[in-house]
Every structure is written in structure tokens, then in C-alpha cells.
Design a protein around this nucleic acid. Sequence first.
RNA 1: GGUCUCGUGGCCGAGUGGCUAGGCAGUGGUCUGCAAAACCAUCUACAUCGGUUCGAAUCCGAUCGAGACCUCCA
Length: 495
Amino acid sequence: MGDLFVYNTLVGDKVKFEPVSAGNVGIYVCGPTVYSEVHLGNCRTFVSFDVVVRYLRFLGYNVRYVRNITDAGHLENDSDFGEDKISKKAKLEQLEPMEIVQKYTLNFHSVMSQFNTLPPSIEPTATGHIVEQIEMVKSILENGHAYVENGSVYFDVAKYNSDGNNYGHLSRRDIEEMSAGSRDLQGQQEKRNPVDFALWKNASEEHIMKWPSPWGIGFPGWHLECSAMGAKYLGDHFDIHGGGMDLKFPHHECEIAQCVSAHKKNPVNYWMHTNMLTLNGKRMSKSTGNTLLPEDIFSGENAILNKAFSPMVVRFFMLQAHYRSILDFSSEALSASEKGFNKLMQANLLLQKAIYSKATLDKQLETKVVDLINGCYKHMNDDFNTPLTIATLFELVAIINTLNSTNSFGTLSEKVFNSLQNTMNGFIIDVLGLDSVQINNKNDKSEKLIELMLSLRAEAKNNKDYALSDKIRDDLTKIGVVIKDGKDGTTFTLT
RNA sequence: GGUCUCGUGGCCGAGUGGCUAGGCAGUGGUCUGCAAAACCAUCUACAUCGGUUCGAAUCCGAUCGAGACCUCCA
């Protein structure tokens, strides 16, 4: 099956994956800030890591998947006058902060489940780990890498680097240059150096979410939660930490610094970063308003796309691009994916229903099928290359359709036939997480009703009453039952 | 301004120093009462200009263009 290779941002190259503890994988993914609806760009990241987790499990690893919910602590901007994002929104809508958190956490879970992502093993919240975060700040202070100023605590980047560490390594940045080129932002008087960042922030009177600490009433800095919760649930040295490219700097850089200072060891072996999803060639972002909500895609109620697309089609569309490439979202591209998706799922359905009966072995075909099966593993092992894996599955689809139409699955050995069935199901359903629920969810009664209609239509056809048979076909199509006349009778699919 | 990434056929999107990516769309056929689906065949590529090489879309340089990060953001 070969080794798994992962692109590690820390190294800047694909490297062989070797877990800290054989057979087990600890993975932490930076989750959403729940102060508004999750947008499609966020979803891409979580779908990408869903496939990573699924594939690791498919390979037999015992995976602990931790993905946080940020429900406090993100500053509006890097200044003393910054406000907690969640409390700002709360004032806007006249709600309790935790009400906002609850509302958008539910929204997030609902969208994630529609995208068929597996829930994380642990989904810790920032507000639930204030104690751990305070403890971590204490450790960093004790180790001399932070200073207190007016009830706030800042990380001392220069001191940290002078102790032999390398803040800036992950994002390949030169701190000296950064300090020199830094803009003169308001409210940075407390910091000794512009590149320093807050570990704990003193809270103003009107600030809603705040907690007591050794430095006064305040709230945790924006990068601290992930460091604290990652260490708590995965240990101070674990396998994979992931997130969007935009988190590489400063978020992940700060996380590393905090962990290294507090625990005196490199926290994570493999850093993985997913690329952005663009809309009209521009990055999707809440702050610029260039966003599209998942619900609006599913319902079709939006100004950008010309029709509705199901969550599975959107998921498939995302997986047709590599996670490290920028992906642009458009109606045309989605329509193409929709057709391809249906073709793939349909062929798999045929294959799983096919009955094997031995025939003369086609050695050449058998070799090709085995090569393609191995290709699926090869491509996934190469830094989770889902587009190539899908391309390989389509090559198998062509073979499956041919064998099906000539009723000749028996030209493969039974062993390879079984392996083909397992591979198609395994990669499509288990690894890529493409749910065929839309095709399979016909309940008994409606299925029988449809079959009744089909038999009436067959009768009409026998009587050469094509007006009636076409009416039945057209009307069924309208309600989402697509009819296909084959040699051995008529089949249907639900759309 | 600094750092970095990318520029592939009608569209999306892989890949890579020499061997068909794949999907969608198009064209011609097979099948069908007609469709749809499926199958077979087939047409469009590697931003521009130089260089390295037996050979480059793939390596190097320049140019043009696009984007990301440098400020909360997946």
C-alpha cells in the first residue's frame, strides 16, 4: 500500500508521515469562531480535514480528532481598544453572548452534518478552558517570555528568539524586518515590540465576556486557546495541526511560540494548511462581504449561482481540487461537478448491485482494474490527492459501465471483482465521504408506487401508446424520478 | 512597500524533464418508438520572451497578469 506522504508547512515539502505513537494519530484543527454563520470557505477547510481524518482511519489508524469552537477571545483588531468579537455582536443584536455562541454553534453543526463531515472526537470551547489558558500564561511568564502591562500579558517575541527559538519559522518571516516595516497602529503603547502579541487582555468596564485572573479581570488572547486545548487533549507533542492558510501567520506562529515556551518542546510534527476558496476570483471573507452561505447554495436563493446544489455536490466539487490549491466557485463549475457526481454514484450503485457469475477471464482488463485500484491508494498517499483519486475512480466507472451493459463482470476473477466493489465503496463512501443518501432514500412505499407507474408505462409502450408512456416519463421526471430504458427493462434514479 | 504562490484546451481542474490525467461541454457513431443514460471514436492545452538539455508545459532568468499573507478571518 505504500507510505503516506504529507505536505508539512514546517518543512515546505512532502514528507513521510510517521505518528508519534505507532498506530495512533492526534490531529487538531482550528475550528470556527461562532459569531456568525459559517461561510463556504470555512466549510472547505473542514471538508478537507474531514477527508484527512477519514483516510487515516481507513488506513487503520486510531485517530483522535480535536476541533475547537472559538466562543470568546478573538479581538476585533490589534489594539487596546479592541473588542471581543462575540460581545460586539451581542450588543448589536441585544443578546447574551452565549446566546450568539449557541445559535451559531448549532448552525455550524447543522451545516457540517449536511456536508457529511464526521464530528470531531472532542470539540472543546475556549470559554470552557479559561483555567487551562491562565495556567499556560503563568508558565510562559515563569519562563521569562512574557511581561505584564496594565493587567494585560504580552508575549515577548524578541526575548523568546534570543533564547534560541525561531518565531517566524513556520511562515518564513524575518522578525527584524517585520518590526521595521510594521505599521504604527493605535493602542500598541503597551507592547514593547509591535510583533509581540497578547496572551491575556485586560477587560474594560463594558466588556461582557471576562474572567478573573492573577493579572486582573480580563479575557484570553486570541491564539492561546488552541495551544492550551491542543496540549490538554493531544499532549504537548502530537502529530498533525491543521487550519486554513490564513491562520499560518500569526495564529499558528503564535501557537508554536506559546507551546514551545510553556512546554519546552515542539508541539506539532506536521502542520497542514488548506488553501482559500474564492468567489469571483476573490477570497471569501466575512469582513469584505464576498461570501456565500451554504444554506443559500442548498436552497438556490442567492445572486451568484443559477440553481440550487446539494451539499454532496458541493462537497464533491471541493474534493475535485487539491486542498492546497485555490478553488474558485462558480455555477458552471458546480454544474459540471453535479453531473460527474451523479455518474460516479450511479456506477457505484450498479456495481454494488451486480451479481457475479464467472466467465472467461480477461487478463488484460483484470490487470488494468488492479492497477487502478492500487492507484486510488497511491494518490491518497500522496498528500491526500483527492482530484487524482477521483480521476482514477472515473476510469473505473468507465469499466464498470461497460461490464454492466454487457453483463460481463465475470470476466474479472471473483477476487478482483470483490476488491473492485470494496474499493469503490471504500473510497467513495468512507474516504471521500460522499453519501449516496439522495439515491438510496427511496422508502418502500414510494418505490413500489414508482414501480407501479413503470409497469403501467411498459404496458402503454407495448400498446404503442407513446403519448401516455411519455407523459408518465415526463411527469415522473418533473418530481425527480429519472427513467432509463435499458435492454433488460427500465430502471430509475431519484434526483 | 515586504514575503510568497500561481498563470494548463470552451469551462473546472490534476500532473510532470521524454509515455492518454479526469470531469463538464462540443462533434460523429452504437443503442432507443423518441428521449435520457451508457458505450465507442474524436477536436480544442500548458501566459510571453529568452536560456539549460538529445528532449521542457515541467528546470533557470526576465516580462506581463492574477491571488494570498504582512490586521480578526478557514
